[in-house]
Design a protein around this nucleic acid. Structure first.
Lengths: 249, 249
DNA sequence: GCATTGCGGTTCATTAATTGAACCTTTATT
DNA sequence: AATAAAGGTTCAATTAATGAACCGCAATGC
């Protein structure tokens, strides 16, 4: 891998941590030599992507991404565009709705609207969504070109719950079903007690850029209701894409 | 410069553009060979920091910073913490108020509250604020250690308007005055017709992390009013720092 | 309709930066 | 005071970055 790739992976590793981290630890986590990690950190710090706590000498994510994100969002306010649709869907189905975006090889949660119900599913911003074990991931995967799906299925599939589907063939079946009806359903594959339906947000090219998902507690998630929610999620995802990329009319 | 530094500078160059840019142009702008620029762009794209328009083949800032920014802000919601104070100050003085943060060697605008007046100063998010030519820059510089001030003054000072102060000694004088009273005043040094007052936002260590500034059109900016505004700006900046770093009481 | 220009993208011998084991320094711990 | 562990640095060996020249394609102009 190139130096740049390694440095960005290092940055990524840091971003996934919830707290500051020392040089030795980060070098081990990123599988880099300590000296190399240090040089990378210094460079990243120069540009504000990383900052070092003056007192503890530990490193953490810096402020530069904030500046860049604002510039990006000023031109492509995906979350802002999508937020009203997410809210509307959350109100309509009265369950937690979350929106994810494909970024840096992963699907990450970028917006959440909670249901008003007392017993609701909690989704954290920034949560990476594994492709094989979440409704969002399946919805995203299902609309990729066949060769990219196969590439994704070649990677090891982590088990997250007793119900996680980890057999490539079983996942292929789910993807086929998802592609056919336009939305996915995942039954407790990521977290026990949660059933989700998700639809991809597609760019005009037909390539998915993210996914919109509804997560419901199992007691409220019978088959008929999830199919209905799936339809509504699909409609909302289409609306987001149209608004974001400009109406295709 | 290291490869990482060059790549991040390239990213920075892209971020400063308001629109997509082609390979040849970006290579020229970043002073890189075309092949080198391409490799950098490919790496940056792999990690989502840059994206290429499929149709025009041009490059633009990607979505990865958005993900990182959210993580950063979840832990250090500087803008969120500061926003209410910025708003309050804007209401109090009825002029445009903007907040900047020191990032990647520059002071960048990260939040703006417009005045309600019809004739008001417009400040764009992301605008880099030159240290010698803006009230924010002077406020920031004035509270740095002497050796860092001298280092900053050694760099060439661009002229932005007929009134820009570009003499190191003249700037030193302004800095001394700023340090003494706690806030800076800049008279049309960045843009004709605009007078600003700014105060630094100081970390508990005493090191400035950014600046809070009020920008008023010259007709409304007499000396007494700017001194009054400066006092209020300083108070607001102090409040932000206290709220952000935890009350020192 | 043919030549020209300009752009995105690629190649590969040359060149320069990255690498990491070992070492030094500082700080916390016993 | 000794020890351990972490941050940080050095420098010869290594490996990756570099860029002039090139290809192919599309738009432009004669």
């Amino acid at each position: 891998m190139s130096t740049i790739g390694k440095a960005l992976s290092l940055l990524d590793t840091i971003s996934q941590l919830g707290k500051d981290i020392g040089l030795t630890d980060i070098a081990r986590l990123a599988a880099l030599d300590k000296a190399t990690a240090r040089r990378f950190l210094v460079e990243l710090e120069k540009h504000g992507f990383v900052e070092q706590d003056e007192e503890t000498r530990k490193y953490r994510l810096g402020a530069a991404p904030v500046r860049l994100a604002r510039i990006r969002q000023a031109r492509f306010p995906f979350v802002s565009v999508a937020a009203p649709f997410v809210k509307a869907l959350a109100d309509e189905v009265d369950e937690t709705v979350h929106l994810s975006e494909f970024t840096g090889g992963r699907l990450s949660t970028i917006h959440v609207e909670d249901s008003s119900q007392a017993h609701r599913v909690i989704v954290d911003l920034g949560t990476p969504l594994p492709f094989h074990a979440t409704a969002s991931g399946l919805a995203y995967l299902a609309f990729l070109p066949a060769e990219e799906i196969e590439r994704a299925l070649k990677r090891p599939m982590e088990r997250f719950s007793a119900e996680t589907v980890t057999e490539p063939d079983a996942v292929r079946l789910l993807l086929k079903e998802t592609a056919r009806r336009g939305f996915s359903i995942n039954q407790q594959g990521f977290e026990m007690g949660v059933i989700s339906a998700a639809a991809p947000v597609l760019a005009p090219s037909g390539k998915p850029v993210g996914a919109l998902a509804v997560a419901a507690p199992t007691p409220r998630a019978n088959r008929a209701r999830m199919l209905d929610i799936g339809q509504k999620t699909m409609a909302a995802a289409t609306s987001i894409a149209q608004k974001y990329y400009g109406a295709k009319a």
